[in-house]
């Protein structure tokens, strides 16, 4: 029973020593003119509503000629780079699920200045951060990223990264559906004409006999009569009485056509008489 309480007190004791020693550590690092950078991944609602969902393998790299630093993702969704000397760095976040805008980080390159968005790091090293464009001119700086002092250790600077989009590894495979066929305009057109082709004769048959007679009278006067007659399937197929032998023998085709047209009307009349 005594052991846990003892441990607790030891931990409390430890906490105070940690603070003291980290302060000592900071004092030590001032002599080497380095600073600590902390990059935080904020919650960016449409793509990454909860930054704690980032995979554990996410890491950030700070690169320049002859310098390469990497930091793993911490439990607080930050990347901490310790003991960074003065220089101009490219900061990339490598994550399998989201894309993050690359940043340009200048450490200690400004002599003095107290513009907004400049955080004072340790040892008077000033930290400036901009968004940068990959493949673009290094001098072509993008939006200034606000830098604030603070972080885990005193004297460090914190700034936030901008999540620009999710990374989709898979393409949706187009699936077959019957509805997609009917959305095709050509199919729709042909279906309408099919409906006309089959539906018209039925309509005509179901008509009142007098109305039908009237309608047929009008049909006769119509110059499109022959064509309509063929399409409604009522009359004779224009090719039905096409005399191949006669055509080959050289008899007048025009005369045949004319008689075919008039004969058409007659045929209909006769049909009606029969009934």
């Amino acid at each position: 029973m005594q052991l846990p309480s003892l441990l607790l007190s030891a931990a409390a004791l430890l906490g105070t020593t940690v603070l003291a020693s980290s302060a000592a550590h900071d004092r030590q690092s001032t002599t080497t003119t380095t600073t600590t950078l902390t990059l935080r991944i904020p919650a960016s609602p449409p793509v990454l509503p909860n930054p704690h969902a980032l995979p554990a393998s996410t890491r950030a790299t700070l690169t320049a000629l002859g310098a390469a630093r990497a930091a793993p993702l911490s439990a607080a969704n930050t990347f901490v780079f310790r003991d960074v000397p003065a220089g101009s760095y490219l900061l990339d976040v490598h994550c399998p699920t989201v894309g993050v805008m690359p940043l340009r980080v200048d450490v200690g390159l400004r002599a003095n200045g107290d513009r907004d968005g400049i955080g004072k790091g340790e040892a008077g090293l000033e930290v400036e951060v901009w968004e940068t464009f990959r493949g673009g001119d290094w001098g072509n700086k993008g939006a200034v990223v606000p830098v604030s002092a603070g972080g885990a250790d005193g004297g460090a600077v914190v700034f936030e990264a901008r999540v620009v989009g999710g990374r989709e590894y898979f393409m949706e495979r187009s699936s077959f559906s019957v509805l997609s066929i009917f959305k095709n305009p050509i199919i729709l057109l042909s279906m309408v004409s099919m409906a006309l082709f089959f539906g018209m004769p039925k309509l005509v048959e179901n008509m009142d006999p007098e109305m039908r007679a009237e309608w047929e009278e009008r049909q006769k006067e119509n110059p499109m009569n022959a064509v309509m007659g063929a399409s409604t399937g009522q009359g004779v197929n224009p090719l039905g009485n096409f005399d191949m032998a006669g055509f080959l023998a050289g008899s007048s085709a025009k005369a045949d056509e004319g008689s075919g047209g008039s004969g058409n009307g007659k045929g209909k009349g006769e049909n009606r008489k029969k009934r």
Binding site: P96, G99, R134
Partner: peptide, 18 residues
């Protein structure tokens, strides 16, 4: 010509596997 080639996730043959 565009100077930057970002790694298109669809061209990653390992997909989401690490």
């Amino acid at each position: 010509y565009h100077p930057a080639i970002e790694m298109d996730p669809k061209s990653v043959v390992t997909h989401e596997r690490e």
